[in-house]
């Protein structure tokens, strides 16, 4: 009886000690396309490590200017490779911490069942009013969509039907609300447990656009933050990769 009570207080004490040691907090800026897997990654990581993560999701370009102006993020999970590289060159991030955490997949998606065929022929028939893409100037997935249309020789034909979302999240909203019949978005937005959640989709062949390698970088604010470093290490584990794969990311 006495022993049991001792054990409980020992566990409690150890718990507090481990919390005090491990329970660090870190802020991470995440590209919009990665926000769904990020939630799952964060809860898995927090349960295992005791660290606490605050996530902000948004457009990579916006995070770049915020970081340049002293935003207190420890890590940037970018939607591209150029932004982390620029951040490193401009000394806002820690050198040699950049790595590709995932490679995104572009998908042509419609909220309507059977609207998008498995070969993307729907684009040539053009029996729709609007096709949504993210702004190619601002969003890597928008750039990939523009490259795909170029590769298919459809840029001019579909020009009058293009509507642009400010980021990939807004582009998804245009299509999900059926204001645009279809649109180019990130596979992770409509993919769960290795399959399409709803609607119809064409997974754009990867030779039609430049690969969407997404890089992470440790920022100056996170230099001495053990939680930030632990999360970056966690992203490289098989466990994390399995989670990302379930949302359609590749490696």
């Amino acid at each position: 009886m006495n022993l049991k009570r001792h054990c409980i207080s020992l566990v409690l004490a150890l718990g507090f000690v481990s919390l005090a040691v491990c329970g660090q907090e870190t802020s991470i800026a995440v590209a919009s396309n990665f926000s769904a897997p990020m939630q799952k990654l964060v809860s898995t990581f927090q349960d295992a490590s005791g660290h606490h993560i605050k996530v902000s999701s948004g457009a990579t370009g916006k995070f770049y200017s915020q970081i340049q102006n002293g935003a207190p993020f420890d890590i940037l999970l970018s939607a591209d490779q150029e932004t982390p590289e620029r951040i490193e060159n401009e000394k806002s991030g820690i050198a040699h911490t950049r790595f590709t955490y995932a490679t995104g997949v572009l998908v042509l998606w419609s909220a309507r069942e059977g609207f998008v065929d498995s070969k993307g022929e729907v684009l040539r028939n053009a029996s729709f009013h609007h096709v949504a893409i993210a702004d190619p100037k601002l969003a890597p997935y928008g750039q990939a969509a523009a490259q795909t249309l170029q590769a298919l020789g459809l840029t001019d034909k579909l020009k009058s039907k293009l509507v642009q979302g400010e980021n990939i999240g807004q582009t998804f909203q245009f299509v999900a609300s059926a204001n645009a019949e279809l649109g180019f978005i990130a596979l992770s937005q409509v993919f769960l447990d290795g399959k399409l959640k709803d609607g119809s989709a064409w997974i754009v062949p990867s030779d039609l656009y430049r690969p969407l390698h997404q890089d992470a970088i440790l920022l100056n604010a996170g230099k001495d933050n053990p939680a930030a470093k632990a999360f970056l290490a966690f992203l490289k584990t098989d466990k994390a990769k399995r989670i990302m794969q379930a949302y359609g990311y590749q490696f």
Binding site: G61, S65, D135, K137, V163, Q164, G165, E166
Partner: peptide
Amino acid sequence: GNIPGQTQVLSTQIYSHVE
């Protein structure tokens, strides 16, 4: 939807330039 000549107005244009 940021369509030039239809819905691309000054405020969104400025935002786009900043981004």
